[in-house]
C-alpha cells in the first residue's frame, strides 16, 4: 500500500490482465523503525507478510518456575508434548530432547501430566543460579 504505482491508480487497478498470480513475490519487512510507521507503511488490513510471528515473541521471561526433566525416568511417551500449550517441548526424531525456555511460561502442565514423574518444577531464580555454577 505504501507505494502505489501510477498504473495501479488507474480505474482498472485490481483487475488482472496478465502475469503471475499476485502475492507470489516475496515481501520482506524491514521493521526496525516500525514504531514510527504511519498508516501508509503497513500492509492493508494489518496483514503481516510473514507467518509464525509468535515465534519472535519470547514469553520465557514470564516464568517463575522452570520444568526440569530427569532423563533417566523419561521414556519419550510424548504426553508432555500434547499437554504443552506453548509448543515448548522440543522433539527430534521421535525423542523428547529438551524444553524451549525462550517460550516456556512455566505453567507446569508437563510436570502434572507426566506419568513417570520425570518433570519437576523448580524455582526459576534457583534454577538460574544453578545454571551459572
Amino acid at each position: 500500500m505504501s507505494k502505489t504505482s501510477k498504473a495501479a491508480r488507474s480505474s482498472r487497478a485490481g483487475v488482472k490482465t496478465a502475469g503471475p498470480a499476485t502475492g507470489k513475490k516475496k515481501k520482506k519487512w524491514d521493521f526496525r523503525d516500525i514504531a514510527t510507521w504511519g498508516p501508509e507503511k503497513h500492509e492493508p488490513g494489518a496483514v503481516i507478510p510473514e507467518s509464525g510471528t509468535a515465534d519472535q515473541y519470547e514469553t520465557g521471561g514470564w516464568r517463575t518456575e522452570r520444568p526440569i526433566r530427569d532423563i533417566e525416568k523419561c521414556n519419550d511417551c510424548m504426553i508432555c508434548y500434547w499437554g504443552c500449550p506453548d509448543s515448548s517441548i522440543v522433539v527430534k526424531d521421535g525423542k523428547m530432547v529438551g524444553i524451549d525456555l525462550n517460550h516456556c511460561k512455566g505453567c507446569g502442565i508437563c510436570a502434572e501430566v507426566c506419568p513417570r514423574d520425570a518433570i519437576e518444577m523448580e524455582n526459576e531464580i534457583q534454577a538460574r543460579k544453578e545454571e551459572e555454577v
Binding site: 498470480a21 499476485t22 507470489k24 516475496k26 488490513g45 496483514v47 503481516i48 507478510p49 510473514e50 509464525g52
Partner: peptide, 15 residues
Amino acid sequence: QALNPLLNVEQPVTV
C-alpha cells in the same frame, strides 16, 4: 487479484 492471500504458500502471511 488477491492481495496477500493466505493460500499463497510462497509468501506465508499472518492475518
